[in-house]
Design a protein around this nucleic acid. Structure first.
Lengths: 217, 217
DNA sequence: CTTCGTTTGTGACGAGGGTGACCAAGTCGT
DNA sequence: ACGACTTGGTCACCCTCGTCACAAACGAAG
């Protein structure tokens, strides 16, 4: 999984040099494990113990919540430069993940062992600031998710979802099935097919097998 | 608002001595402002700037999210020993609150000026641990709120809400109106009246003017 | 080309829950 | 005691969304 160090060191520098102080970056190159992960990989599941903090260099990760029956709902996406604050719970001795994380595209990331991150909290001010900022961002995104569930109807949520996907994928041609969309929004395939059809009639998008092409977003 | 220092120093010690180191507690007595706040006071509103971190000694605070039209929905309650992690965003230079906070009962708390809290992050390990733990708890509670919205039907949410109220109030006789409950759950008064009536028929509670008496919870 | 699994389109139906209307019963001020 | 206001109960109705059912379209593998 680990590739040429020079490559990812430069990539990490480009992404984090404005955020993390130089000595910390050097420490990151020593203790961080670089990984390339293909799309669709489950990085983390509910109940798993987390022993490392991921820093996202490239790609995107889908964060989901599951209910006891296994139904899932999309919470938000992590993008390049983000980290997963929930996994920081590991510092607190909290043992188990309460979410599922799946790569949404081919992704490269650096895993920082929990023990190392814990040390950095004391030694590197820019690290603790980064961790705090990460928590703050995740809280804001959870609030956005709550807004969607509490205040928005399904057509609106669907449009927001498709817009987000376009941004995440960097492509207006989305390769996905109606069933996948239904799972992310925690509704049924039939409902999504209906709504997509009506959005197509409005000219907002066009439908194809295994694909949705967005016109407006 | 400020009362006899000796009283609240003891109270704070009892509540936080296991969590915050002794020298930090001394600093807290110097820089913290003690306040008694009656039930129903709005401590914080959306768009307000936050210049202090609250530590809850006694009572309870209701945290709500608002949509642009002013509709609100209950997120969770803060109880004694809790702090409001969202207000820590103040450390990050984030300016405005995205939530509303209203006292659910008569409440006593200590306000720590943002600048002081920021210093403590570097000087007192127990403070940064406490802040991180607070973030973690708030995230977990937001996840619970999302579960309720995404996975639970209204009768279930209502039962959970009433149970929470009993726990928060420490009394099975809840003094509230159907309209208040409807606001917290972001639904309509008629719907709540219907559901409460059916719960009364099941023997779970009894209904009175401005009051609901819980039997099972 | 045929077969089979997957994906999509659509009609009919029902449940959950939101809305308007209206009245009864308390509560408050004067 | 009077009216005005707040709270609660209930009816009728509607809309959104979830479910069942089934057919058509498509693609991959033989």
């Amino acid at each position: 999984m680990t590739s040429n160090p020079i490559d990812w060191h430069q990539q990490a520098r480009a992404r984090f040099s404005g955020i993390l102080e130089a000595p910390l970056l050097e420490d990151l190159f020593i203790h961080g494990h670089h990984m390339r992960v293909p799309e669709g990989t489950m990085l983390m599941d509910v109940g798993q113990h987390m022993d490392a903090v991921p820093l996202l260099l490239e790609g995107a990760i889908k964060i989901m919540r599951l209910d006891p029956e296994g139904d899932e709902i999309l919470l938000y996406f992590l993008e390049s430069g983000d980290s997963c604050a929930l996994s920081m719970g590991t510092y607190m001795g909290s043992t188990k993940s309460s979410i599922r994380a799946v790569t949404e595209r081919d992704t490269t990331l650096v895993m920082v062992p929990a023990a190392v991150g814990q040390t950095w909290m004391r030694t590197f001010p820019s690290w603790s600031a980064f961790v705090m900022e990460s928590y703050q961002s995740r809280l804001e995104e959870m609030l956005t998710a709550i807004d969607a569930l509490a205040f928005m109807d399904l057509p609106t949520r669907l449009k927001r979802y498709l817009s987000d996907k376009v941004k995440i994928q960097g492509d207006t041609k989305l390769h996905t099935t109606h069933q996948d969309i239904a799972n992310d929004l925690h509704t049924s395939r039939v409902v999504i097919s209906r709504l997509l059809k009506s959005l197509e009639r409005e000219g907002i998008l066009s439908l194809h097998r295994n694909a949705v092409h967005m016109h407006e977003f």
